[in-house]
């Protein structure tokens, strides 16, 4: 299945997610006008989420993202790991409602 969601962080940036999944996340792509330093960390964030069982907990996604940020000494600006988890959850909800 495929899903897409947009999530506007209050007072912050716009985050979008495009996913493909069955029992696990097969492919994840994030888009938006947020900042992430260094920028290439986005590839690792997307990769580490592949294989995540569906359904997932917000905390599990948050933890995976926070782990990558820490390992890479990376910094998100305008969005948070929680926002990434929420937009993924919404993408799944949107796919289910189609």
């Amino acid at each position: 299945m495929r899903g897409f969601a947009e999530y506007k962080v209050f007072g912050g940036k716009l985050l979008k997610a495009e996913i493909e999944y069955d029992t696990t996340l097969k492919r994840v792509r994030f888009f938006g006008d947020f900042f992430l330093h260094p920028e290439e960390t986005i590839i690792l964030l997307e990769k580490i989420l592949q294989g995540t069982p569906i359904p997932f907990s917000i905390e599990a996604i948050e933890s995976k993202i926070a782990g990558v940020l820490k390992d890479q000494n990376a910094e998100l600006v305008g969005v948070s790991p929680n926002d990434f988890a929420l937009v993924l959850q919404e993408a799944i909800q949107n796919a289910n409602s189609c």
Partner: peptide, 9 residues
């Protein structure tokens, strides 16, 4: 467009 943005979107 920003580094993380989709051209199409």
């Amino acid at each position: 467009i920003g580094y993380f943005q989709s051209l199409e979107q």
